[in-house]
Write a protein that binds this DNA or RNA. Structure first.
Lengths: 218, 218
DNA sequence: GTTTAATTCAAACGTTTGTTTAATTTTGTG
DNA sequence: CACAAAATTAAACAAACGTTTGAATTAAAC
């Protein structure tokens, strides 16, 4: 793949994440990338196909990692959950821009793009499903709602990658922190929270039936 | 407030949620609302101010509810957490369109709009913060990371309101379910999951220090 | 060195965008 | 009814949009 083509993809990723697909013009991309306007049609065919190329080139990576993690027989389900959290927090925080696109471009006009993003998400979900189901089968994890648990992991991370201003304010990270410090502190905080949360949520020893009557009343 | 003005707001809410702010043209809104194109500028001044009006008119409601819940001295912290979950799931699922806008228009060009949406979120966060801090002070809740816990609640709900197709597939709700059934089943599932999750996460009796060494190794 | 293909470019294409205009109709008031 | 204010309209505005064109330039192949 050509250097220039890849460069355009990187610039487009940045701009789409920052201003949205519709909010980014082909002229914006061309100017920011330092290439002629017509080159985008020349390389990708159209603006929409550019986005498809972007999703295709970035989306395949995660599945491979999860698949590898799953196949590693030397790790306990608890280890895998911890590594899963580490991986996803790092992955999303280091690819915040692409993740923002995947997240918000459900509302893209193209059905083809919707289809692809959902397809990628479903494939990845399947891998996480295996990890938790394995822990349940080994009587380490409770019979939790697996897809909902995955939603909690992804949702929590996503929630804190939507707006730097909001995150910095609520997490008291300081207003004018630089991007690297921001990512570092957010990463630490997210990993610790999610690991605690999942331990409490999954641990079979915390199981005391679907309802706890001693919580009712006061 | 005029009927027609309110009608335009409702139509705009629908279209913005469905196709995004940039993806929706003023002509789209005018046609769908059955009003003349110029009426939008006449009533709201501009497309951007229309969005500001929309956020303003919808955003104030939640704070009032949370404030009321907080002031109710007859409820225990556990009761309040349960009611919080019920309220937020219902609120977001019944206003999915507006919520989608609030969620994705962080990337709106206008700084004014960003400022307002973050302001609304911060005000609401403060109320939830009070509920959990109260439970901690009464020695019912562990010393969890409160903003992160709020992020988990909001993030989990948001994760499952981004795409109906994805939700229906992963949650096995059936592909061609109608919107009312979809909302109903998603609501039940989300509430049950979040309540279980928060019980395990918050309950002080599950506390065994920040790390559990017995989970390490295999 | 010549020929062929791939790349780059400025310019222009036809649409669509948000907004404004100025004329017209409707509404409310004395 | 008369008059002023408010509401509504079709038409037009300039600007921005994604895409295409055809000539100019560079690179590759023989």
């Amino acid at each position: 793949m050509s250097d220039k083509r890849e460069h355009i993809l990187n610039v487009a990723e940045e701009l789409f994440a920052e201003k949205g697909f519709d909010g980014t013009s082909v002229r914006d991309i061309a100017q920011q990338a330092g290439v002629n306007l017509a080159m985008i049609s020349y390389y990708f065919g159209s603006k929409e196909k550019l986005l498809e190329s972007l999703i295709e080139s970035r989306g395949g990576y995660v599945y491979g990692i999860l698949d590898e993690l799953n196949k590693d027989m030397s790790l306990s389900p608890w280890d895998k959950v911890d590594r899963l959290v580490d991986f996803y927090v790092d992955r999303i925080l280091n690819n915040m821009k692409f993740h923002t696109i995947m997240w918000q471009e459900n509302s893209a006009r193209s059905e083809e793009i919707k289809r692809r993003t959902i397809g990628i998400k479903l494939r990845n979900l399947e891998q996480i499903n295996k990890i938790i189901a394995d822990g349940q089968q080994k009587k380490l994890f409770r019979q939790v709602d697996i897809p909902m648990t995955v939603g909690t992991i992804m949702g929590t991370i996503s929630y804190y990658t939507q707006s730097k201003v909001y995150s910095c304010t609520t997490l008291a990270l300081g207003e004018d922190i630089n991007d690297e410090q921001y990512r570092q502190r957010l990463s630490t905080r997210l990993k610790a929270h999610l690991k605690h949360l999942l331990r409490a949520h999954l641990d079979i020893r915390n199981d005391s039936g679907p309802m706890r009557d001693d919580h009712k009343g006061h």
